[in-house]
């Protein structure tokens, strides 16, 4: 289990990185944290001709939290975002989800943007981006960067809208709206494994304190994170509503029926928790 040979590029700045990516096209692969890519290389399931290591491009190692949201640069590690109280204050779902991403040691190297680009349908961060309606910024050498909305970014299992020659330079996660709460519930065979199913939930109360909008994103039950608008669904009908709107597949760890069932259970739990968080936010704002 050793990687196949490749040409290695270690650009010092973004321009150089984009130039190499432009030149290598579909043969070029970006190495950031490597926590998903290098296992594939070691198993020789991937054999890119060129590896573009962006770890030396310090300007990509950014994390900015504002009233609008959190912008995560391509080199910001999971652990940095997880620890950032500014990021958690602007969008608590980030920390809630990041605590569930693999194990602490993997989070020390793995990057948030890398996880988005990897687009594993069972991964947490794509669901967070999808639920919040965030976006990914894709830069290229021969044109302006483009901002791709989450809804357009995840195109299939392990497939994203990233084109050859492009580099995902950052991702933007919108801030938590007022009177809102979030939660992330998932169920994995072992702690830290990819989840059999998982739910990210966002609940927003109206100005009177009644439940306004309810949205969830489901992982592990479709080809991409599945965002469902559950606004108006009674709490005890959430599980049923979710189960009726997903088509999970069986694998060696769980049957399709079980995944469907589980997604419902987790959705009810996540919405309940997010509702509680929203309630707290509402009460806090009212005081």
């Amino acid at each position: 289990m050793k990687p196949p040979p490749f040409d290695y590029h270690a650009p010092r700045d973004l321009g150089e990185a984009l130039a190499v990516l432009a030149e290598t096209g579909e043969h070029g692969k970006v190495l950031a944290g490597g926590q998903s890519l290098i296992p594939l290389l070691n198993m020789r399931l991937a054999a890119p001709g060129h590896l573009v290591d962006i770890n030396r491009i310090d300007p990509l190692d950014t994390l900015t939290a504002t009233a609008e949201g959190v912008t995560v640069g391509a080199l910001a590690r999971h652990s940095r975002v997880e620890r950032s109280s500014e990021a958690a204050a602007a969008q608590p779902l980030l920390r809630q989800a990041l605590r569930l991403v693999a194990h602490p040691v993997i989070r020390n190297r793995g990057t948030v943007v890398g996880s988005l680009v990897h687009a594993d349908p069972a991964a947490e961060m794509p669901a967070v981006l999808a639920l919040l309606g965030g976006s990914v910024r894709l830069a290229r050498a021969d044109g302006p960067a483009r901002e791709v909305a989450a809804a357009d970014f995840f195109t299939g299992p392990l497939e994203s809208a990233l084109r050859p020659g492009e580099l995902a330079v950052s991702a933007f996660f919108p801030a938590l709206p007022p009177r809102s709460g979030t939660a992330f519930r998932e169920f994995a065979r072992r702690h830290g494994d990819y989840a059999l199913a998982g739910i990210a939930a966002l609940v927003t109360l109206d100005e009177a304190g009644a439940v306004g909008a309810v949205k969830v994103a489901c992982i592990g039950v479709g080809a991409t994170p599945i965002v469902l608008d559950l606004t108006g669904v009674e709490p005890d009908a959430v599980a049923h509503a979710v189960r009726g709107r997903i088509e999970p597949e069986a694998d060696i760890h769980a049957s399709a029926d079980y995944r469907r069932h589980l997604a419902g259970v987790l959705a009810a739990r996540a919405v309940d928790e997010a509702n509680g968080e929203a309630r707290r936010a509402f009460d806090h704002a009212g005081r």
């Binding site: 490597g34 926590q35 290098i38 296992p39 290591d53 040691v105 993997i106 190297r109």
Partner: peptide, 10 residues
């Protein structure tokens, strides 16, 4: 960090 998931050149 996992040294098996890190290239020496990185």
């Amino acid at each position: 960090v996992r040294s098996c998931l890190t290239l020496a050149v990185t």
